[in-house]
Design a binder for these strands. Structure first.
Length: 343
DNA sequence: AATTCGTGGAA
DNA sequence: TTTCCAAGAAT
């Protein structure tokens, strides 16, 4: 490691000692490493998700399932329902599979390579858990690190091509000791100082080393490709009631909202509008429209309720007591649809 | 390599 | 209001 790289790591760790964010899944700087289960669980929840959104879910999961064996033994349905509202539901399916693999094996893998074998664990999470929970030296690169490093070294090639260079530079400044603290310090710096817009360079412990700041406009890094326009889709969902209960189905394992409970829908997707065909005959009334924005398309979902008619759906599903709807674990789109139907 | 996966908060 | 984007992974 060069003298310059050493001083970057040293300056960052000193800053972290007094400015580390306090988070439920984290140990204070210098303290013994936290439980690998809690580190892994938090990392899975945190991907593409804010710390504020994760906090209540992390509290509930660790309350209900305090260790990996408890999570491994939990019914899949309950875990999926507990994940409802957090998004990216394949994470929950992979979470269960990984918990069962770890529980069967007896312990978490303590190496990056071993962790990488678990479903839902990619390059980032494997490196982060190895560093934070097992104090292994690992090159941890998330979106925060990409931003900090691309600015520190003024890497002007656009994403995603610049990622290789970012990794090389991150490796060069990663110290052999306090690997977990270093990774978390980089993320804290990105989250609180080296922010996407209007970075607070006057407060930055690395300001003197930052090539982008020297150039004068650090916010231009990292350079990102233009985004595509989101298509606007139309769809419908059906609110079928009998004896104070509503008919819920389970969505296919793969694809949007996979494996989650849902209202019957008309086949809308990112690529096509729904066909508008109701699942049962009857006189339907439009209770309203829910506007919902996904990552890659926007959806106007018509919420259809049965004014009168024979409401006996065919195919798989279950009558769910409306009074207990909260426990069904509906994804946000369908929770909003239910709210509209009941309004 | 480019797409496909949710959601809610901030600017 | 719209746009951006937050501790990415799987395919």
């Amino acid at each position: 490691m060069t003298a310059s790289a050493q001083s970057i790591a040293s300056d960052l760790l000193s800053w972290y000692d007094s400015h580390a964010r306090v988070l439920p899944w984290r140990s204070p700087p210098g303290a013994p490493a936290p439980d690998p289960y809690r580190v892994w669980l938090s990392e899975v929840m945190l991907q593409q998700t804010t710390t504020a959104a994760v906090a209540p879910y992390f509290a509930e999961f660790t309350r209900r399932w305090p260790d990996v064996d408890a999570l491994a033994a939990a019914p899949e349905e309950e875990v999926m329902a507990a994940w409802a509202g957090l998004g990216y539901y394949s994470r929950a399916r992979n979470l269960i599979a990984a918990a069962r693999a770890v529980s069967a094996h007896g312990a978490f893998p303590d190496s990056e390579a071993g962790l990488r074998e678990l479903p839902g664990v990619g390059a980032y999470i494997a490196a982060a858990v190895a560093a934070i929970a097992f104090n292994r030296r690992a090159v941890v690169v998330d979106a925060n690190v990409e931003r900090v490093v691309s600015r520190l070294f003024a890497l002007s090639d656009p994403l995603p091509g610049v990622r290789k260079a970012i990794r090389v530079h991150t490796d060069a400044i990663t110290p052999d000791v306090r690997s977990g603290d270093f990774a978390q310090a980089m993320m804290d710096l990105g989250a609180t100082i080296c922010t996407p817009r209007d970075p607070r360079c006057l407060l930055c412990p690395l300001a003197d080393d930052c090539a982008a700041r020297l150039q004068g406009d650090p916010a231009q890094y990292p350079v990102k490709p233009a985004k595509k326009a989101k298509p606007q889709r139309q769809g419908a969902a059906w609110w079928i009631v009998r004896d104070e209960a509503v008919w819920l189905v389970r969505r296919e394992e793969k694809g949007m909202l996979g494996g989650m409970r849902a209202l019957p829908s008309d086949g809308w997707s990112a690529r096509a509008d729904g066909d508008g065909a109701p699942p049962v005959a009857g006189e339907w009334r439009k209770a309203g429209v829910v506007r919902h924005s996904f990552t890659h398309f926007d959806l106007d979902l018509a919420v259809m309720v049965l004014a009168e008619g024979l409401s006996m759906p065919t195919g798989g599903g279950e009558w769910w007591p409306i009074a207990d709807l909260q426990q069904a674990g509906l994804p946000t789109l369908f929770a909003k649809a239910a709210q509209r139907a009941l309004a």
